[in-house]
Nucleic acid binder design. Structure first.
Length: 483
RNA sequence: GGUCCCUUCGUCUAUCGGUUAGGACGCGAGAUUUUCAAUCUUGAAAGACGGGUUCGACUCCCGUAGGGACCGCCA
């Protein structure tokens, strides 16, 4: 918070938000964006960003998933306050809330069995009727209850009227209460269900703003009823639209429903992914490339749109290319090395690096980063650095190195051997002089050189390549292809 | 089926009743050039449809169509 004088309202406006993933898998792209929005909102308002793991479903709990999610957040550089809260660990408190609801008459014990519920659903389906669970136990006298049968505790939700969700993104959403049934608060095994746990935890954690996917919009209405039953005030809501695949359908693995670690392995930078993700649904005028500082100062819930967005790799790549050019060489080197174990051929490169190719790779980065969309491109572009003599030529390079070209390279070697110093400008001067003397355009000379030096027709500027390779390696490669 | 939400260039979006409907990615053309990039110039490209309201609608209202979310003793 700034030091400026604040009104009571402003002072109390420092929000407390949370990201609450369920540990069923990795941190997918939609979850990453939700976490980003929460994080930005907290940063923008001098608030607090908390984490809570929604692990009340013991059958699905998975420690590896929790670790993957935390790793994903860390990689994205979204830092949270304190330790992640385990929802499961708070089960006793949730039960207490259920009892409170029972005591105040806002909940009741329901002895409907799963089989009976299935039958009710099947009947509704057969009659093409809207299903609405109307438990017969809702209005029964407690002493009619069977003594030792398992029961669930259900919310005694209002049947008349409507429940209103005032949402920062969706606006005022009104849902008729007749369409909201008496949800289960406590399972027959005594464990709390999601909706109860969320309400109790959000309340206890002092959450002021709940920012999550629209798939929770109807839950917001149900949770509102629980808040009301408990006599607690409802937090502010912001339900953000979902991210769709390129075809408009649900995000599939082929598309982008990958864990963030997959984006890491594809060579994307966290800054780039953040910038891309924030623009999916949120905007600040025409701004596209925004620094984290700018995002923090501009971000607001009101800038989030209501329509779902499609994931577009091309735009992510464009942003990534931009950020790669902006990132300093050392950081690029570190990040590239870090993903080596995750990419094809990375193991061999790691070995070459360990056996002394590091300085050359570092030297190659400035020219490589100008033409790389991802770190993977950067690494692949450095293939010429890691290649061993005699170089394997690709098809186009082989075609380029015909007899006259080899002959020319022979002459070039002679000229280059006389270089006063082995630097890009000095080498360029020699080659330019050579081409002029022979009445050739520079490209006619540079391309065969490139082919012999890199085995490819595409590379950073040849003089940079020679400088990176050094005198002896460069000349050796050239001699390999000289007539 | 019920409830709720959504609909501007191919994609992400700007516009908060009056604009030649803007930007970005992608795509086309050109410039530059040692290849590939980068960069610069430039072109094509949009208000789903139908009704209202209004002097005036992309913007407000209604309907239609299309899309999505939810409807578990999952979260």
């Amino acid at each position: 918070m700034t030091e400026k004088q604040t009104t009571p309202a402003a002072r109390s406006s420092a929000p407390v938000v949370r990201f609450a993933p369920s540990p069923t898998g990795y941190l997918h792209i939609g979850g990453a964006r939700t976490a980003l929005f929460n994080w930005l909102y907290a940063k923008a308002r001098g608030g607090t960003f908390l984490l809570r793991i929604e692990d009340t479903d013991r059958e699905r709990n998975n420690e590896a998933a929790v670790a993957a999610i935390l790793d994903g957040l860390r990689w994205l550089e979204l830092d949270w306050s304190g330790e992640p809260v385990s929802q499961f660990a708070r089960a006793a408190r949730h039960r207490e809330a259920a009892e409170q609801l029972l005591a105040s008459g806002n909940a009741y014990r329901c002895y409907l069995t799963p089989a009976e519920l299935d039958a009710m659903r099947a009947a509704a389906e057969a009659e093409k009727r809207t299903l609405s669970i109307r438990s017969p136990w809702r209005d029964k006298n407690p002493d009619e209850a069977p003594a030792d049968l398992p029961y669930t505790i259900r919310l005694k939700a209002p049947r008349e009227g409507e429940t209103v969700v005032e949402d920062h993104v969706q606006g005022r959403v009104v849902i008729p209460n007749k369409d909201l049934d008496d949800l289960i608060l406590l399972r027959s095994d005594g464990n709390p269900t999601y909706n109860l746990a969320v309400v109790v935890d959000d309340h206890d954690m002092g959450i002021t703003h709940v920012v999550r996917g629209v798939d929770h919009l109807t839950n917001a209405a149900r949770q509102t009823q629980i808040y009301q039953g408990l006599g607690w005030s409802v937090p502010e809501f912001a339900h953000v639209p979902l991210i769709h695949g390129p075809d408009g359908a649900k995000l599939s693995k082929r598309h982008g429903a990958l864990g963030v670690e997959a984006y890491r392995a594809m060579g994307y930078l966290p800054v780039a992914l953040r910038n891309y993700l924030v623009r999916l649904g949120w905007s600040h005028g025409d701004d596209e490339i925004m620094s984290t500082e700018q995002l923090v100062s501009w971000f607001d819930l009101d800038g989030i749109g209501r329509s779902p967005a499609r994931f577009d790799f091309a735009k992510l790549e464009a942003l990534n290319a931009h950020y790669i050019r902006q990132t300093d060489d050392h950081e690029l080197f570190e990040r590239a090395v870090a993903i080596l174990p995750e990419i094809e051929g990375g193991f061999d490169i790691a070995r070459r690096l360990a056996s002394g190719a590091g300085p050359q790779f570092r030297a190659a980065i400035p020219s490589l980063k100008e033409r790389s969309k991802t770190l993977v491109d950067l690494i692949q572009g450095a293939a010429y650095v890691f290649a061993a003599r005699p170089l394997a030529l690709d098809e186009k390079a082989a075609k380029l190195l015909d007899a006259p070209a080899k002959d020319m390279i022979g002459k070039l070697v002679t000229a280059l051997e006389k270089a006063p110093e082995w630097s890009a400008p000095a080498l360029e001067a020699i080659v330019r002089e050579f081409s002029e003397a022979n009445g050739l355009k520079l490209g006619k000379v540079a391309q065969p050189l490139r082919a012999a030096l890199t085995g490819s027709t595409v590379s950073p500027p040849v003089f940079d390549v020679m400088a990176v390779l050094g005198e002896s390696e460069s000349l050796a490669r050239l001699r390999d292809h000289a007539a």
